[in-house]
């Protein structure tokens, strides 16, 4: 197989992604250091999910790879989300 038009991420892009990730980490630490009650958890998890998406799309190259990878990752994350929802429905309404 030949991937002649294979996308190669530039070094600059990688460094930019790194800066964004560190910035988001600083924001998470800042947000959780102030008292927001239940929003602390929500904000921290939301930012962590954004960071995870950035790592998946750029560092793990999903954005540029064949779409079969994106589809399979999507399916797995959907299954995982379903397990979370079912588990918490169980615990909240027990």
């Amino acid at each position: 197989m030949s991937e002649n038009n294979h996308h190669i991420s530039s070094y600059k892009d990688h460094l930019l992604v790194l800066l964004i990730l560190i910035f988001l980490t600083v924001i998470t630490v800042a947000i959780t250091s102030i008292e927001l009650g239940p929003f602390n958890t929500a904000a921290a998890m939301l930012i962590a999910s954004v960071k995870a998406a950035v790592v998946l799309l750029y560092f793990m190259h999903l954005k540029f790879d064949h779409k079969i990878y994106r589809i399979t990752v999507g399916i797995v994350l959907a299954i995982y989300a379903a397990v979370i929802v079912v588990t918490f429905f169980d615990y909240f309404y027990r």
Partner: peptide, 17 residues
């Protein structure tokens, strides 16, 4: 990157929240 991905969730869950 997976190892990094896991830590992205471990850090807020254990240290921050």
């Amino acid at each position: 990157h997976l190892v990094d991905l896991i830590w992205i969730f471990l850090f807020p869950l254990f240290y921050l929240i």
